[in-house]
Amino acid sequence: MSNDLTVLQATTSAMAQAMDVDPSVLVLGEDVGTAGGIFRATQGLQQRFGANRVIDTPLDEKGIAAHAIGMALYGLRPIVEIQFSGFIHDAFEQLMFCGAKYRWITGGEYTCPMVVRAPSFGGIKGGFWHSQSPESYFIHGGGMKVVVPSTPQDAYSLLLAAIVDPDPVLVLEAVPLYRTMSGPVVEDGVPGRIGEAEVVRSGTDVTIVTYGPPRHLAVRAAEEMAASDGYSIEVIDLRSLVPWDRETVSASVRRTGRLVVLHEAAQTLGFGAELAAAVQEHDFGYLHCPVQRVSGHDLPYGFSTGDEYYRPSIERVRAAVRRAMEFEF
């Protein structure tokens, strides 16, 4: 039995169900209690579970992260809300040099089961501080799992998976999809699988690997180019960046021989660079052309009206596919 939910409603449902089942799960962050969070993702949770489990904090990302780490080390399962991922950098030291390292520095004696929910990505004309794609910072540091849901079902299932995981998990939530995307969600309380990609659309000519909001851009481009150019384009939504599903990507590239990587973050040292390098290393003999990258630009996100210039466009995706299809050695 499924219910039609928005991405935001699915996020709220996952937290509510986890808190209902496990009294060690709690939420803390700026305005998460009385106001229900800046996007109202936690609306109603404080009234249902009490102020001791849905905790309003000062405007202090570093302090929020530090307190959550302490709670996790003492047996709780905190869910931290960072209002926008553009403000997460103040907490970077606590998250990456403390929370993400306890399993390793204690030889597995201690773990740090905490979730950091970080609303991310452009598309709401939020300008520089409210449109970030910070995944590479946390991927490179080690010890932090990173998931990026882009559908209501994934928002629900991956958040549940993050909550029960024994290690820190960063959930990059797609702000532009919170209320604009809805779909069926099976609210069965069953966590998803971190590290498992989804083949959203099957194809034989080109593989597009993506995550987050560009998933929907890739599907649109694939459908339009199938009609206009006759190209058969496979679209893979990674859903999880640490760990990422190398097997699914490799199998697809070995079938199609062409790869386009698509993400909203800047190109240099973006996650697409790791995908391109891994495919070159493991699947080079199957490639018919160089790996194509479509990304944001290597500069700060535009102020307020820059969304349409910074974010990948369908025209850029089409151009990358054509470069891959028309390449000649």
Rank of each mutant, 00 (worst) to 15 (best):
D154F: 06
D154H: 11
G141D: 11
S120E: 02
M144S: 10
Q153K: 12
L160M: 07
G127S: 04
I163D: 06
L158K: 12
F121L: 06
Q132F: 01
E135M: 05
A162N: 10
K125Q: 15
A155P: 01
P166Y: 03
I124P: 00
V148M: 03
G126R: 04
T151P: 08
W129F: 15
V147I: 15
I139C: 01
V146N: 02
F121K: 03
M144A: 13
P166S: 14
P134A: 08
G142M: 12
I124L: 14
D154R: 10
I139V: 12
S157R: 15
H130T: 11
D154N: 09
F121R: 00
A155T: 07
S120P: 00
M144N: 10
P149R: 04
G126A: 07
M144L: 13
S136K: 05
S133V: 11
Y156M: 05
G123D: 02
V147G: 04
A161Q: 09
Y156Q: 01
H140E: 01
V148Y: 01
D167S: 15
P152F: 14
S150Q: 02
Y137A: 07
S131R: 07
E135C: 05
G123R: 07
V148H: 01
G127V: 12
G126S: 03
F128M: 15
Q132R: 08
P149N: 08
S150V: 02
I163H: 11
Q153R: 08
D165G: 04
F128I: 10
P149A: 08
P152E: 14
S131P: 00
T151Y: 08
D165R: 09
E135P: 00
S120V: 05
A161W: 05
A161H: 05
S136P: 04
G122N: 02
M144I: 14
I163K: 13
G122M: 10
A162L: 09
S136E: 09
P166G: 09
F121D: 00
S157C: 08
V148F: 00
S131G: 02
E135Q: 12
S150G: 06
I139D: 07
Q132T: 08
G127Q: 08
K145L: 14
A155I: 02
S133T: 15
E135F: 04
Y137I: 02
Q132G: 01
V147T: 09
L159D: 09
K145M: 10
G122L: 03
V148D: 00
M144R: 01
G126N: 07
Y137P: 06
L158T: 11
V146T: 06
P166W: 09
G127P: 00
F138Y: 14
G142A: 12
F138T: 00
A155M: 04
G141F: 04
G126T: 03
F128R: 06
H140W: 07
W129K: 07
P152Q: 13
